[in-house]
């Protein structure tokens, strides 16, 4: 598995996301409370690009008329038909078993350790003093 350095830590604010390209794939990098997730930028349903998806929380209810809203920002709602996906796992909330967004291993690594190589950084230099978001593919 190769390591791809795709962004510098700090570049994507909490609750936001950006698209990076790795080996011809469009991957959506999302910052969830300063942890990162990497998802294919394509909805498994009808292929919408997920970049425009809404970052939302999880609305649950034990009983008609009662609402509990938690985990703000941990879900992505598809920009087309509104299916909800858990960002950490890529799983669809309504159909976790059979519907999921393809996801990739992602890590934060210090520039120092990257300096030992090997890694691929497509568009920017890596400095030992910074930390980077690395996708394993």
């Amino acid at each position: 598995m190769a390591r791809f350095v795709v962004a510098k830590v700090g570049e994507i604010p909490r609750g936001e996301q950006k698209v990076v390209r790795v080996k011809g794939r469009e991957i959506l990098l999302l910052n969830v409370d300063d942890e990162y997730a990497a998802l294919l930028n394509r909805c498994p349903h009808e292929g919408a690009k997920l970049l425009c998806g809404a970052r939302v929380g999880l609305l649950e209810s034990d009983e008609p008329g009662r609402f509990s809203y938690t985990r703000q920002g941990e879900f992505l709602r598809c920009p087309w038909h509104g299916w909800e996906f858990e960002i950490r796992t890529g799983q669809s909330w309504c159909d976790p078993k059979d519907t999921r967004i393809k996801n990739y291993d992602v890590k934060i690594e210090p520039g120092e350790s990257l300096a030992k190589g090997p890694y691929v950084a497509e568009s920017f230099p890596v400095h030992v003093e910074d930390s980077y978001i690395v996708i394993y593919l």
């Binding site: 919408a48 425009c52 998806g53 809404a54 087309w80 509104g82």
Partner: peptide, 10 residues
């Protein structure tokens, strides 16, 4: 509607 302006967010 389900979403603002009934439209795709993109």
């Amino acid at each position: 509607r389900a979403v603002r302006a009934l439209s795709r967010r993109d």
